[in-house]
Amino acid sequence: MKTCLIVDDSSVIRKVARRIIEDIGYEVDEAEDGREAFEKCTQSMPDAILVDWNMPVMTGLEFVKELRSYIGGESPKILFCTTENDVGHIAMALKAGANEYMMKPFDREIMESKFRDLDQK
């Protein structure tokens, strides 16, 4: 089974996202910030990562940059999921190595279509 790491400091978002992503067919793990996510990745690299932008300890952007420069860290498909909804943030995330970007609020249909697109990338 494919694996997905959900990185968000909100337990509500993690819970909502987990339900949808498990339905899509992933085995899901969670992390509360970028640092915890990075450590989990060094132990076992997931196939996909859903990551928030603003989090304590280490932001989503810092996490993506650090992961992408780590050996093996180029393989996961990374999808941002954040309230940051301007062109500048989207461009910055893609440049840092994210594969896709989703703006909150989202719904199940958007999440499913983003994951379908990730499969093609």
Partner: peptide
């Protein structure tokens, strides 16, 4: 709306 552009449009195509 933000919802509508996220239905089927990749972030790259959006920006």
């Amino acid at each position: 709306t933000q919802f509508e552009v996220q239905r089927g449009l990749s972030a790259q195509r959006l920006i």
